[in-house]
Design a protein around this nucleic acid. Structure first.
Lengths: 237, 237
DNA sequence: CGCACCTTTGAGCTCGGTCAAGGGGCGTGG
DNA sequence: CCACGCCCCTTGACCGAGCTCAAAGGTGCG
């Protein structure tokens, strides 16, 4: 196992909130935030908490999840450096609709929403950036809604893995490693199915040589095969 | 959730884009739009068209739908007076992800997105209004995604009908009439099922006295019964 | 009055959810 | 260094919600 201890090659990724701002503006916005550190499992905010701050990840990964009235949990997204979350706080919404929790050691920037709204009033560019972020989320969930409404589990799982691979995948000589400790239960919650079905499908894909899977591990050995399943190029093998 | 804002018979509903603006500002924004009239079936924009304008409905109803790569259609929403659509054009997105089509005779306000972006730069309030609109959509689709991932068809259909009732319902002495010509196919596309299943469930509800249904018609006779189904199917009542 | 479209209903089947049982990796403590 | 125990994962068996296909009954419009 060639596990070279890798210093994360990621320098700090610029928050998309700051895109296109002048250096002076960007540093002014940045300095309006405070930095926050969380250990794995630490909670940024819980579903139902007053929505009063906006976050941007500098390092680490964050899990966004939701619990239904009946107690069923779903995992909406797992996000990494450069991603903004809690932006709903800009919309005079009273409470967060999701729970945000550190999946690893995380450092984030935090803006009290009133401060950020003040800055928005002075920097229209910032407003447009926020709008763009929101629009991206609208599209993502519209797409996933449609997916959920029209597609089979196998295809949804393929898409989930490909999305994770593109967001947090790491190339190895064996294939693309999904660099997150995700259990079958986690994948099931993201895909809208059960852990049993996820397990069965992964086993099947493993015998086909598409992936290698193990405890909290998935390696995509043949991405094109998954893409084929995700898009259904009208072929059965 | 019995959050049923009474369908106000207000003829001209103010666009939420203009909320909180001074009269002068509002009229300036309004006059930057041109008015457009569509006959039933008329198309405002097609999925894939360049996203270059934002719309706000003055009168009539608009259907927003999407077609999957495989040609399956889904109906995302049916919206009425005072609703903004196409706001994604503010996000430098290249194309509309949905098709917008008049369900009735419609009059709408249309802003070229570049014009609206210019106004946003001068009126921060307008920016916050836009953000708020987007945030509402994010929440709606997150919720519907979760719903689709975790709930049975019967419950989803109950929610769909209640949502339609609250948006476009009209009180009659028999119950709440869903004042839209929606076919079983339309309801199926909104709920993520097939027209057969919709028909069966409506028939069942009809024998229970919950609704009366007919050709492109649904009357909710006993909303509380639907709410019960929408919220907890587990209970006997 | 006939045709197009919407709706209903039945029969069969399958995807995937549920329950149950057992295997295996990994950390901890002896 | 080994053994224990906690999770996580796999697999089998069953079954039922809901999809598919087929056929026929309504309803409204030209």
């Amino acid at each position: 196992m060639p596990t070279t201890p890798d210093p994360s090659p990621n320098p700090t990724i610029e928050s998309p909130l700051l895109a296109g701002l002048t250096a002076a503006e960007a540093s002014r916005v940045r300095s309006a935030a405070r930095q926050q550190l969380k250990k794995p499992g630490g909670v940024f905010f819980m579903q139902g908490d007053p929505a009063d701050a906006v976050y941007s990840i500098e390092t680490g990964r964050v899990r966004l999840s939701q619990v239904t009235a009946e107690g069923q949990q779903i995992l909406l997204r797992v996000i990494g450096p450069g991603t903004v979350f809690g932006a709903i706080a800009l919309a005079r919404v009273d409470t967060y609709p999701v729970t945000a929790e550190a999946a690893e050691v995380c450092t984030v920037l935090v803006w009290p929403s009133s401060v950020l709204m003040g800055l928005i009033e002075q920097m229209p560019k910032l407003a447009l950036n926020a709008i763009q972020l929101m629009a991206g989320h609208v599209q993502e969930f519209q797409d996933r809604f449609r997916e959920m409404a029209t597609q089979r589990v196998e295809r949804r799982l393929a898409r989930t893995l490909l999305r994770l691979a593109s967001q947090t995948g790491r190339k190895t000589d064996e294939g693309v490693l999904i660099d997150l400790a995700l259990t079958r239960q986690d994948l099931a919650e993201m895909t809208g199915t059960t852990l049993y079905t996820v397990s069965r499908i992964l086993s099947q894909w493993e015998t086909q040589g598409l992936v290698r899977s193990g405890r909290e591990l998935v390696v995509i050995r043949y991405p094109h095969g998954l893409v084929k399943i995700a898009e259904d190029l009208g072929e059965s093998g």
